[in-house]
């Protein structure tokens, strides 16, 4: 973990709603692993006291990219960043995905919307190729599928309005695929997306006895484990304990998660 100020290398649209911000951050880039995140200081937002956390989407040498959607005050002011602008970044933070697949297992990535970003970084580092299930509300929320194909991954798409791929939730093509394998399915799941999707996957992983590594998104403050804002209830060694998503997470093995009403951050 370190503080590094890097210049914007590029800042491009990804589809109609999303943007990719690439920063030159040699130190953070060289230490980053998939599933970790960076905490950006949004300098244009003078009255903001909190940094903004983003999963790492890509690392190319000394350049690090994030994929984001303009959803609020922080991301809105980030949209004005131009090549050459300096951005202060804290990272890499948290614990990422395992970058190996258990022997005999087949990697299955499941993404909701721009939750696909850290899974892309993971796909570039996994030694085996597998299948990506990606879901979203509409076709415009399905990102990076061509990039996954270019890496040699199979891609299954679901949209709620049916504008691309199967109509419905991403769990539907996932379930159909698992069924088609009969009892031979030995997936190792890696997922990032909305809580509802992650919980649905956790239920399936529990029933199937599969490992599922899920990346949680919670309201964060400091990003380093000091403020205790992003608390998650998990089971560790048979005991229910509170852990910090920013420090012990954001990636957890699904069977450790205790889902409760308190997790009402979508």
């Amino acid at each position: 973990m370190q503080l590094e100020t890097g210049n914007v290398v590029s800042h491009d649209s990804e589809g109609t709603l999303y943007r990719v911000l690439t920063l030159e951050l040699p130190n953070i880039s060289s230490n980053a692993v998939p599933g970790q995140f960076v905490h950006l200081r949004v300098s244009a937002l003078q009255d903001a006291v909190l940094r903004r956390p983003f999963s790492i989407y890509r690392v190319d040498g000394k350049n690090l990219s994030i994929l984001y959607k303009n959803v609020g005050r922080g991301t809105s002011s980030m949209c004005t960043l131009r090549p050459g602008d300096a951005v202060n970044v804290l990272g890499p933070l948290g614990n990422g995905f395992p970058t190996a697949v258990s022997s005999g297992k087949f990697p299955v990535l499941v993404a909701g919307g721009y939750g696909v970003a850290p899974l892309y970084f993971l796909a570039t580092r996994l030694p085996v190729k597998g299948v990506l299930f990606v879901g979203g509300a509409r076709a415009r929320d399905i990102l990076l599928n061509d990039r996954f194909k270019a890496l040699g991954w199979n891609v299954c798409i679901a949209t709620e309005d049916g504008s691309l791929g199967t109509r419905g939730r991403v769990t539907e093509p996932f379930d159909a695929w698992i069924q088609s394998l009969g009892g031979d399915a030995k997936p190792e799941i890696f997922a990032c997306g909305p809580n509802g999707m992650l919980k649905a996957l956790c239920d399936r992983a529990r029933q199937g006895g599969w490992n599922a590594w899920i990346s949680l998104d919670r309201h964060m403050g400091c990003g380093v484990g000091a403020c205790l804002a992003c608390i998650q209830r998990v089971v560790m060694e048979g005991q229910e304990v509170l852990v910090r998503v920013c420090k012990e997470g954001p990636v957890f093995e699904s069977r450790t998660i205790v889902w409760e009403d308190g997790n009402h951050e979508a």
């Binding site: 309201h219 804002a229 997790n263």
Partner: peptide
């Protein structure tokens, strides 16, 4: 002490409101 439920923190103009609850 376990503290409060989440969300525990919200940013507002010029600051933040926290209710960590002394975990």
């Amino acid at each position: 002490w376990k503290g409060n439920r989440t969300p525990r923190l919200v940013e507002v103009p010029g600051g933040l409101i926290n209710a960590i609850g002394l975990q």
